[in-house]
Design a protein around this nucleic acid. Structure first.
Length: 611
RNA sequence: GCGCCUGUAGCUCAAUUGGACAGAGCAGCGGACUUCUAAUCCGCAGGUUGGAGGUUCGAGUCCUCCCAGGCGUGCCA
């Protein structure tokens, strides 16, 4: 599927392994029948305990197969059923629509099929024959609701603890390399708030991709060539001369922002104004270079303060200066993919799905941004990446198709994925703000970061799908109240740390491993069960969020997990006089602690031990 | 005009990619701390998913048309 990144996982994978090849290769995903007893695609784990979801899936597939073999249901191939955690508790711990799907292909009544499958499931997975399920129930139009056996759940809990930091990680990427380009602001001034959102989004997405087994490179593309750099240089030059007391005219299309004056002053502080006496051309060139260096270092500093580390800062200028851009244009001409018209060189992008052809080389001899971008993306492919992801602002969406057309024309169809992010509306106490109180100009990302802090900024940027414009309320972000979801989640983490500290103070033994099964069986309240089940959602969520390019799912999940913990905490004492029960509840709490940490770490948000 | 995105509770947003009675938070009302952090928890109330058709066992989700908002539609970047 072309274009949008937030879109689908097209088509849904039958296996639990969630094959990412549907994203990577154009052929779509291989529809193999669901695995029955194949080995887990998980990287870690002790090998004895299968991921619950995978095990359930296998059981359902087996039931279908057996029922087919025995002639109870007609043959119809392996169906693409859904296994999900139902919204309502009354619908069991997990549920599947397998019977309804089968009904579609066989024409039999869904409830009838469900009864048959349920019988097979009971026979195999419920005591006395098995110990995975406690109850199997047919409900509604033909859902099969599954309730897990308690001991099976405790084994799963033990796995959460034993995997620790690795819990939630997958090995789906087969070490394939993905290049993620994001932020990519022009180095002509401070970053704006929208850049902050791309930074948070890009970094979290990279974390997710790494978590499911890809090798990821974070890249920042610098448009440090062309008209805007010249305008920037001229603007700085004008401010510099003003500061030096030389009357000069500010360029009519120059950058008005006061930061230009700041940059000019910084340069002047360094050189004492000596450049004012240089010949105009030399002066402008030197000032332009210096100003570029300053603007770039500001950007680097902002990203560092935000905790985003780029592997590559790629300069457009280098592609221009070493002739790569020219070479790419010539090459396209030679291959008949570009042509001359009206004194300009055009690329025939319309042959590859674009609305019309696009100019590569203007009649004044200057290459367009598009030409450079083609060269840049080809360069990425030459560097050996299997897949490219770009995060662009929504205002660039008109550019997506031509870029993908260019990729296709160069033999790379479906290798470039563009994620478009909607913009950020700043608010303060519900009222829109655009201007900074301090400078009267646009609020910069640095100012925002300074005011609300890294954790709140990162988290709040990631609470919404990138498809929707984000309302960012500064006042709410700063408030350390229950209105602020960051603190809600972090508070759960700090609370558990507090319990552990309390326990240590009281000499409660904190064993490394899991308590015995008998001890864990003391966890019999509804709140404890809910909490455990919520923990198990994590790993599939990580995988799905990575595949759907949807880091915001993680924030929502963490809020749900935190909520489940807060409920548990308010109803039950973790540390009590009952040593066994204390041990069991401490263990459960530590599992929650681990998953909160793993999740927050994927978002790039800290997990404080005290608040 | 054409293309893309969005429209869900008073507000900000989810909804496991076509599944069960559309869920959270905030705002509103009423409750819970001599106990491990009350930055928490419990209860109540809140809906014709912008509108109209269609596809099917089943639609917020897919198709068509309409309405509203945002963005794009350069030999700009």
């Amino acid at each position: 599927m072309r274009g949008r990144g937030g879109g689908g996982l097209s088509p849904p994978c039958p296996g639990v392994s969630g094959c990412l090849s549907c994203k990577i290769t154009p052929g779509g995903c291989r529809r193999r029948p669901p695995a029955t007893s194949s080995s887990s695609s998980k990287l870690k784990g002790n090998g004895r305990t299968l991921l619950i979801a995978r095990e359930l899936r296998g059981l359902i597939s087996d039931a279908i197969e057996e029922a087919t073999r025995s002639g109870e249901i007609p043959t119809s191939g392996a169906p693409d059923f859904v296994l999900e955690r139902p919204r309502h508790k009354a619908h069991g711990d997990w549920a599947t629509n397998a019977a309804m799907v089968l009904s579609g292909t066989t024409g039999r009544k869904p409830r009838e099929l469900a009864e048959i499958l349920a019988r097979h499931l009971v026979k195999k997975a419920c005591p006395p024959a098995g110990s995975v399920l406690r109850e199997v129930e047919v409900a509604g139009p033909g859902f099969i609701n599954l309730s897990l056996d308690r001991d099976r759940v405790f084994h799963e809990l033990a796995r959460v603890a034993s995997e620790g930091e690795a819990y939630g990680r997958w090995d789906l990427g087969a070490a394939r390399r993905i290049n993620v380009e994001f932020v990519s602001a022009n180095p002509v001034g401070p970053l704006h708030v929208g850049h902050g959102r791309w930074a948070a989004l890009g970094d979290a997405l990279c974390n997710l991709l790494e978590a499911v087994g890809y090798e990821v490179s974070r890249e920042f593309y610098l448009n440090d060539y062309g008209t805007q750099m010249e305008v920037f240089a001229a603007s700085v030059e004008a401010r510099y001369l003003e500061l030096a007391g030389r009357p000069c005219e500010f360029p009519p299309d120059g950058y008005q922002g006061s930061y230009v004056v700041d940059i000019a002053r910084e340069i002047m502080d360094e050189d004492g104004g000596s450049l004012a006496d240089e010949p105009a051309e030399v002066r402008r060139a030197k000032l332009g270079e210096r100003a570029y260096g300053i603007a770039l270092s500001h950007i680097r500093r902002s990203m560092e303060a935000f905790g985003v580390r780029f592997d590559v800062w790629f300069s457009e200028r280098e592609l221009q200066r070493d002739g790569t851009v020219r070479k790419v244009i010539d090459d396209l001409l030679e291959r008949g993919l570009a042509y001359e018209h009206d004194g300009a060189v055009w690329m025939a992008t319309s042959r590859f799905g674009d609305d019309k052809d696009r100019v590569l080389l203007r009649s004044n001899g200057a290459p367009t941004y598009f030409a450079a971008d083609i060269a840049y993306h080809l360069n990425k492919m030459e560097r050996g990446f299997d897949h490219l992801i770009n995060i662009w602002g929504a205002d660039h969406h008109g550019y997506v198709r031509r870029m993908q057309a260019a990729m296709e024309a160069n033999g790379y169809p479906d290798r470039l994925e563009v994620i478009l992010g909607q913009l950020v509306n700043l608010k303060r106490g519900g009222e829109p703000v655009r201007m900074s109180k301090r400078t009267g100009e646009m609020v910069t990302f640095d100012e925002l970061l300074e005011e609300v802090g890294r954790d709140a900024a990162r988290y709040l940027f990631l609470t919404r799908s990138q498809d929707t414009a984000l309302d960012f309320d500064i006042q709410l972000a700063v408030e350390q109240s229950m209105e602020n979801p960051v603190y809600y989640v972090q508070y759960a983490h700090a609370r558990i740390c507090s319990i552990l500290r309390y326990g240590e103070g009281r000499g409660v033994e904190l064993k490394e491993g899991a308590p015995s099964l008998d001890t864990l069986r003391l966890l019999e309240s509804e709140e404890e069960w809910d909490l455990a089940m919520k923990l198990f959602e994590f790993e599939e969520l990580v995988r799905d969020a990575a595949l759907a390019r949807a880091p915001h799912r993680l924030t929502r999940y963490l809020e749900e997990l935190a909520a489940a913990f807060h409920v548990f905490y308010n109803r039950h004492r973790v540390i009590s006089d009952d040593a066994e029960l204390t041990s069991a509840r401490l263990f459960l709490s530590r599992c929650v602690l681990q998953v909160l940490r793993n999740g927050l770490s994927l978002l790039g948000v800290s997990a404080p031990e005290r608040m």
